[in-house]
Design a protein around this nucleic acid. Sequence first.
DNA 1: CGTCCCACCTGATTGC
DNA 2: TGCAATCAGGTGGGAC
Length: 267
Amino acid sequence: MPELPEVETIANGVNERVRGARITRVWTSGKPQTFKSPEQEIADTLTGATIAAVRRVGKTVVMDVTRKKIAAQFLIHLGMTGRLLVSQPEVALPAHTHAILSLADGREIRFVDPRRFGRLSVTSGYTGPGAEPTTISAEAFAQLFKGRKLAIKAALLNQSILHGVGNIYADESLFRAGIRPRRQAGRLTRAELDRLHQALQDVLARAIHLGGSSVSDYVDAEGRRGYFQIEHKVYGHAGEDCSDCGTALKKLVVGGRTTVYCPNCQK
DNA sequence: CGTCCCACCTGATTGC
DNA sequence: TGCAATCAGGTGGGAC
């Protein structure tokens, strides 16, 4: 479901509500695919721990916890349909709930994930697989794509190059930079890469400001929708007229993902 | 190693 | 109305 702006919105929302809380009990669903660490290890690490902070790294929600002076991290990757909710215990459990952290004050942090593409694990020292798009310099950004033969869209989606960008923000930033998604990453000029760097950071900042994109059912920790979808210029608009030039937007598949672009504005 | 493709899941929507 | 096909914000493993 969520890309960088949605994960950031969720992490910030959860952080504001549970930072400093103590976890008294952990329940997990036993669906093996969901758990990258053994469920017992997750329970042992979190039970009795205090939540120091909840933040985003790439598309992963990182919960920093301390238990008996030992620091650890609970990683929540939301996949396509994962949600992280902070609820009062009397609120009915949603279907497909896969983990519940009960807090000392009675509230519950719930991980809900219908498609089960999400993953839960515990670790320490997590830094994510790639570079951080919101703060990377134009120079370092350009460096990432040197010599790469894959399509620029596929490169943007590759989390080990740049982490946090997904299908929506890849298409939206390529449109705003005027670059066709199939262009070979290593053959973009420095000027084009600078435009892409700027467009990507603008789009991500704007989307974070609006609470992310709610395409179907994405909601943050408090059940609020995001509003960046109103500003999508290409994602979800295949066949419609380009908002800038009126040309019909085209759809194709790049890196295995549906891709929409303007054949006139993007070169 | 780089790149491509498909499997992994459920649910909503579309089309016959 | 009913049922099958298609599509979805993401990864990760295997094939080439």
